[in-house]
Design a protein around this nucleic acid. Structure first.
Lengths: 330, 330
DNA sequence: CTGTTAGCGCTTTCAA
DNA sequence: TTGAAAGCGCTAACAG
């Protein structure tokens, strides 16, 4: 059993300094309003007592609690940690704290989290939301919202435009002589997935390439490994995967099937989160998740400050990063 | 510009339902105290008005805000996401929210975060804290604290005991005929690092193995890659790395130096976070981070509930996971 | 079982 | 420049 000091309140400081409670409050929020010597006396007393302003009380009184929420589908997916980190850094710069939520790719859980967070945060960043547009709109009416990788008009959003990179990927494969490729798709509700699939299709036609869509339900290593048979049965000589993690699974599955990469099969990932750590090193579409996290939070804080909501649509371009998993067809 | 609904308060619901404010409060917190029909009437009114209890006001009044903090050194290190996820899941079960903090391996930042969180959370989990024992003790006086991978008497802690696994690793290498091995160490303030280093040393002597310590400042891919020269210059034929990420860097560095694994050199990681995704698949010491996260939060919630602090020391055992990066010396 | 009445700790008019 | 006083929205005795 341990005793824990009950918080020192503003009144105790006021008494100790021989001033009114309001003056103590002012000393901490708008010292300019007080005589420097008064401020100093108050601060001295506060210091001596170990006074720390009570965040909750302040929040109740002002309606501002200096927290923003960040909700992601899967922390364990290497796409998100850098984004989270950047978001946190940006929040920190304005003395905001971040509430992190993980939905496990479940829209239901996401809805629940948004509800749980609302009321404790001033605003929310939804990264790669799997919610329906309706739900997102509904939430946006209740509190300031910024979206990452979700394109909904009227709601501020930052989009990592993988089309540019994906297009380069397809052209690269075309140049290498591939004529039939597979796209290993991601989550159905993922905006990025739709975008990538569309980009592949639109780039493939002029390049004279056939595209087969192979569905991997979740963006995961296992998912990727499980669809290798399906990929091979399409007769494709190359594949682009929804993301690097899926691609890594595909890589493993191919190896298990004695298909060697890139000699027998070319593979390209997306998001470039694995760097050169796979073997062979994975060719991938670059990623801007750090900027995305930073910009999203910064946008959100702007909204909070200006009390207005502009229709921002911030697009971040990408490109193909060549490594060792692609080669010309035999 | 968008108008956002100002919150409906308990008073409005009370008026609408023709009861006192306290009854509304009771309907939400202890419905059992009220007549079922009263509760129903209140709920109906609340529903109609779209009433949602104000978390902040409740927190101010009760002193409990249903949040716990979790601070980790580096979200991007694959050791932590599963831990975070598990912690969040466990918190969720008791309707608690998690504040996540990332310190970037900096004690200073960690101290700052603890301060920022205190006052908004009821308790804190410090995972792999890089703080000095003094600082940790100081914080523990101010609010309920649970430690992960930090062994400080009197503060509840859950420890992943890698000694067992590391010992197996050394014995495994001994059996393969290795006589001189290197330990690629981790962060200086890391309890796990000290534990692993000690376990290696104590297991090596009876096995007739010499150990050289090679310091990698940070647990990262880059760090690992950078110390390969140092490792090779010790004349070791095998190495155990502080963690898998570091090991992966070492693997890359070895390959760049044309040292092939396991033919020319054997390598073992720790934490088993990379699964079989490296090439060759990394032999590693198993990891219990999911349990650690779950147990830590559960311990913390217990403390909050019982208002007492028992001297818990929960130890999770580990073992060696054999894959493909070790073999007998030539 | 339900209403009345104080607060929780801080901010913020309004006066002085 | 400072103090007094009225809340912010909710909970928790204490009566009845």
């Amino acid at each position: 059993m341990i005793k824990r000091a009950k918080g020192v309140t503003i009144s105790q400081v006021a008494d100790a300094a021989g001033v009114a409670r309001s003056s103590v409050s002012r000393a901490f929020t708008r010292p300019g309003m007080l005589l420097p010597e008064t401020v100093e006396r108050i601060m001295k007393a506060a210091e001596a007592l170990g006074y720390v302003p009570n965040h909750t009380a302040r929040a109740l009184s002002t309606g501002r609690h200096g927290n923003v929420g960040l909700i992601v589908p899967d922390i364990a997916n290497p796409f998100f940690p850098p984004l989270i980190q950047a978001a946190q850094l940006e929040a920190d710069r304005s003395d905001f704290c971040i509430f992190l939520g993980n939905t496990g790719e479940s829209p239901k859980q996401e809805d629940k989290l948004v509800g749980r967070f609302a009321g404790q945060v001033e605003g929310l960043v939804l990264a790669s939301s799997r919610l329906s547009e309706d739900r997102i709109r509904a939430h946006a009416e209740k509190l300031p919202l910024v979206l990452i990788n979700r394109d909904i008009a009227g709601i501020p959003r930052v989009l990592i435009d993988s089309s540019s990179g994906v297009r380069q990927a397809v052209e690269h494969l075309a140049k290498l002589g591939h004529r039939r490729i597979a796209y290993v798709s991601g989550p159905a509700n993922s905006w990025s997935n739709k975008q990538r699939r569309a980009a592949i299709r639109s780039a493939a036609t002029p390049a004279g390439i056939e595209v087969d869509i192979v569905a991997a339900a979740l963006p995961s290593y296992e998912s990727g490994r499980n669809v290798v048979q399906a990929i091979l049965s399409t007769g494709a000589t190359a594949a682009v995967a929804f993301d690097d993690v899926t691609a890594q699974g595909v890589l493993a599955g191919l190896s298990e099937n004695h298909v060697s990469v890139p000699a027998d099969f070319s593979l390209i990932g997306c998001d470039d989160v694995l760097g050169a750590v796979t073997f062979p090193a994975l060719t991938s579409v670059s990623n801007r998740s750090v900027e995305a996290g930073r910009v999203a939070v910064s946008l959100l804080l702007d909204m909070l400050q200006s009390h207005a909501i502009r229709d921002v649509r911030c697009v971040l371009e990408t490109h193909l990063v060549l490594r060792s998993t692609t080669t010309a067809v035999a």
